[in-house]
Each structure stands twice: as C-alpha cells, then as structure tokens.
Write a protein that binds this DNA or RNA. Structure first.
Ligand SMILES: [Zn+2]
Ligand SMILES: [Zn+2]
Ligand SMILES: [Zn+2]
Ligand SMILES: [Zn+2]
Lengths: 165, 165
DNA sequence: GATCTAATGTTATGTTATAACATATCTTTA
DNA sequence: TAAAGATATGTTATAACATAACATTAGATC
C-alpha cells in the first residue's frame, strides 16, 4: 500500500488502481473533471465515486457489482443510483457500455474523438478499446451507399488476445 | 386473408408474413429446414414456430413478446422454451440477437457466409442486415495489427434510415 | 420394445434496468 | 441572504431479460 492510499483520504479503497498504476485514478479523475467542466456539467461526489470504481477495474464492471462496491463507501445506494451515474458518465463519453456483456468500462481516451470500438478476449476477459477507429472509413461508405445517417455505433469484437491463443 | 392462411393449417396465425409477402414464410421455412438438415439438427415444431414468428415480424422481436405470441399457438410455454429455441436458431445462424436492443431478428441470408452487421433506425425501428460485410477487410486488418483472433462480431449501427431523415 | 439421447415441460430464481415520487443540494436572482 | 427554480440524489417498487435444475416426453439406435 502506497502513499496514494493515504492521499485519497476517506475513499481510499475504491480510488486505488487495481493494477497499481502510479497516479492512474488521480489522472483519470482530473481528466474527467475537465470533460465535465467543458460540458458545463457537475462532476459530483457520486459521479466521481462511480467513475473511480469503474476506472480502477480496468475491465468491464457489472452494474450490480458496482452497486455493491459503491455501497461500501456510501449510504443509500440503490440500482437507480448506479444507473443514473452510469448514464451521466456515458453521456459525457467517460464510460462505455459493452452491450454484448451488459457491463461498463472506463473510456481510455475520453478527450479524443472516437466511437468506442472494442476487442473483447473471451478467455481472459480483457477488453481493449481501439485507439483509432479502423471502421470510420467503412462507416462513411455505408452512410453514403445506404443513405443511412449513423449516430451511434456498437462494435464489439469477441475473440482471443495474443496471450490466450 | 389469402390461400396461404389455409395452407398453413393449424398454425396459420403465426405463419403469415406481416408484410404480406407472397410465400415469404413458406420459403424461409424451407430455407431453415435445409440449413438444419445439413447440420444434422432437428427442425422441430417448436423451433419451426419460433422461427416463423420471428421471421414474420421482419423486425426485432423481444423474447417475452415472442413468448406471448407463441403461447397463443402452443401450450406449456415458459421463458426457457423461448430462449432454448432462440439459442438453437442462433447457433444455426437462422436468427441474430441484436445486443443493443435485447431483441431477435430473423436472418435475411442464412445460407450466405456473413457476420450479422446491422443498420438500426432509431425512428422507425426498421433494421437492415447488411448483405455484404463492409467491415470484413477492417476486421482482417485488426486481426493482423492487434494479433487478436476474432471469433464473433457485434456490429450494430444506430441512426436514421432515409425515410426518417 | 428396451435403452440411450436430445428436446421440451415445469418450477423457481437470478440478473439487468427503469418508473415514480420524495428529498436534498446547487444555482440564480430578487 | 432568502426565496425560487433547477438539478441531483434517495427511496420504494416493479418491469424486463435470462438461466438453473430437474422431470417428462419424444426420437433414434440397437
Ligand atoms: Zn491503472
Ligand atoms: Zn472510449
Ligand atoms: Zn415477408
Ligand atoms: Zn444474418
């Protein structure tokens, strides 16, 4: 247990990066705060806590697991509490929902224009968010060819990562 | 009410195409039957009925709506009944699950190699399955670049169709 | 027709998500 | 700064989606 735990004061438990990255959560929280400020939205304690828990996992989190983690640092937590916070964070692009898993993942690049395209390893459950959208050209082509105006994409590729092949 | 209704005998109700396409369900059932035969699987009454209901809609169907439709032509229908049939049909590529809608759609081209990529109109709820996979090249590239072996893709593009723009 | 296997029936429960309304907190402005 | 309005959260209840476990039935094999 490092200095970071002390620094994080009362909510230390949930605010520590599960992979022990130095300053990981602190930086992500700064990042998230800026995103909210720019959007003129409030980054409340609840939202901060939910974001920090999701982020700390570095992997998809189920809403009800999140609920039980959140309960350990906060009172009066019900499903609606969690889903409302998740909805907000999604609306700001700070977390993504993985539809094929019914789980939520902290966005790895919230300040970059991107659509949330994921590689999901069926074996180790690691999920990688593609940094640059390799599908954007295909998507443009589809929009033209099919005269279809795309507003949101769900692209989740299930398979095996290099470690699990 | 046309001849087709009479032809379909006891299960006429659910076996009629909701868009009044001539021979639509009959042909799809023949198609599905062949797919099952080739796979050495049984296309039972239950599976046939579930497939026909899903197909007749020509749009995504919720499992519990399917359940209630199925109940009108069959006894002893419970959630498991429906989900088992859907699992089977999915395994044969005869229906797809739309993860972002929690709904099921009859496959428009079950005998063609394809991955199930969809355009979903948020306005009229019409869903089009892309006939040729425009993403297959991107997917190949990702597999090489990321050393990730893709086994299943979830690609659902939400937006507005030409009629709803 | 006895045996084995696959499919379905049946009951119960687990999991995921939202509705509706009360209360608290923040922001704005008089 | 007190009142009013808007946003966020608390609280209770329920809706919507899906699977587990075991019994029974129907089809295939011998
Ligand atoms: Zn970290
Ligand atoms: Zn992202
Ligand atoms: Zn039809
Ligand atoms: Zn298909």
């Amino acid at each position: 247990m490092t200095d970071r735990l002390q620094e994080s004061s009362k909510n230390a438990l949930s605010f520590a990066c599960k992979r022990n990255h130095a300053l990981c959560i602190e930086e992500a929280l700064e990042h998230a705060k800026r995103v909210c400020e720019r959007a003129g939205e409030r980054f409340t304690d609840l939202r901060k806590q939910v974001f920090a828990i999701v982020w700390a996992e570095h992997k998809p989190v189920k809403a009800y697991d999140l609920l039980s983690e959140l309960s350990s640092i906060r009172k009066g937590v019900a499903p609606a509490t969690v889903y409302r916070a998740l909805d907000f964070l999604k609306s700001q692009g700070l977390v993504h929902k993985l539809e094929s898993l019914n789980a939520y993942l902290g966005c790895s690049q919230p300040e970059t224009e991107h659509h949330g395209h994921f590689l999901i390893c069926e074996c180790c459950e690691e999920v990688r968010e593609l940094a640059f959208a390799p599908f954007s050209q295909s998507i443009d082509e589809i929009e033209k060819a099919q005269k279809f105006q795309i507003k949101h994409t769900t692209i989740e590729l299930l398979g095996r990562c290099i470690k699990c092949q």
